[in-house]
Nucleic acid binder design. Structure first.
Lengths: 215, 215
DNA sequence: CTTCCTTGGTAAGTGCCACTATCCAAGCAT
DNA sequence: ATGCTTGGATAGTGGCACTTACCAAGGAAG
């Protein structure tokens, strides 16, 4: 298929597809002659993937390129590919280590990981972006006056752990069936988050109206 | 306190504070004369709040203004203020109703809400942004080839419901103690999400390494 | 009183990002 | 031969979150 058809079948304008090609989010088509290139189903699939990451996952273009680089990196094992792709996702800015709230937050998160017995996560604290995000967020909440500590976070962490177990179970269920399982796993991990967030807000609406009515 | 001190105590540059004042995110200080205005602790508090929303919650400036408008709207009951503020948060773009995947997604989400017995959420489907977000996300995942349906979402939804119950319990615990409980509740709801997301990713890292090691 | 610094306020500029519009020459279709 | 379409390159757009530069008024020091 040619550019116009790729555009039609994906619902993405040709101008935008050209932009993605330029940015390296989409491999170039098979060149037939100077003015014609041929694209296949794989291109269509990758294009939909890119769109989903950008529009649903709100992943910036540069990060998408990074994530795709890890997806296509055959030199890594599947667990590492997943980790590398997840770590490429946008993160919160660096915390200011001199800030007292940041220090207190680090302390609380450390206590939390200890109590949870998350030994592996504890080992990754120096490099894991999600650990950093958690510290920054807890610090921000404490600065605002919340008593946001290990105590309060424990039940949330346990629920999130069960969510992660579900994620990996689903991934494995796909792995045995699908060819492009790594791609699927990474996408699942990335696109799960908007779905989870939407579910969380829906649940909040449900529970709020159950408790207080519509008023 | 004057602008310079407000800047120093909040860690936000005077230029940025001026920008927030212009944008209406911060009420003007008490004007003493043509070149001096006085700010108080309430300004500092509001400024920290704005910063947390923008930097941690990634809420765009226009949305922050909207949310604050609801926070300050004395004509609404607390449940409605919370709802209005939550609905002002950034959302996914409008779905294309002619798209077959969107229709299928709508169907699946409907089934999900039925099975969960979320009657209130079901009533809000025509207006709730979180419902729309869920539909768009499910449609995007289905377009990519996932068999993302009610079946798969059920256990996630139940975990998210339990998370929402925790949210509201915490809110109520604060309500009995704090003066600015509405503000606290809305902030909790907004800033909870980054914390939850970070916890989710941490849990994924933990469980991935438990299952597959570091490789 | 004069010089100088600081203050709050305004207007314009910056850098980044995700596109989008405009050109262009080469081909293919009639 | 003529007119349309194609892929590719370059430059422009609009939005956002600030920043910079500038201004006149006010207070402080000599």
């Amino acid at each position: 298929m040619r550019l116009a058809e790729l555009s039609e079948r994906s619902g993405v304008s040709t101008a935008t597809i050209k932009y993605y090609l330029r940015e390296g989010l989409l491999p170039p088509g098979h060149q037939i002659n100077a003015t014609t290139a041929e694209y296949d189903e794989e291109h269509l699939r990758r294009l939909r993937l890119v769109r989903a990451m950008i529009q649903v996952g709100r992943v910036p273009v540069g990060k998408v390129r990074e994530v795709l680089g890890h997806v296509d990196d055959d030199s890594l094992g599947s667990a590492m590919r997943l980790g590398a792709a997840m770590w490429a996702l946008p993160q919160v800015p660096e915390p200011d280590e001199d800030d007292e709230y940041v220090q207190a937050a680090r302390q609380e998160v450390g206590t939390l990981l200890d109590r949870l017995g998350w030994e592996n996560a504890k080992q990754l604290t120096s490099i894991s972006p999600s650990y950093r995000s958690l510290v920054v967020t807890v610090a921000a909440l404490r600065r605002l006056g919340y008593d946001f500590g290990a105590e309060l976070l424990m039940p949330y962490a346990e629920l999130m752990y069960r969510t992660a177990v579900l994620d990996l179970d689903n991934m494995e269920a796909y792995s045995s069936q699908e060819e492009e399982r790594i791609e699927f796993a990474i996408l699942g991990a990335i696109l799960n988050e908007p779905a989870l967030q939407a579910l969380h807000r829906l649940a909040q609406e449900e529970e709020t109206t159950r408790r207080y009515g519509f008023e």
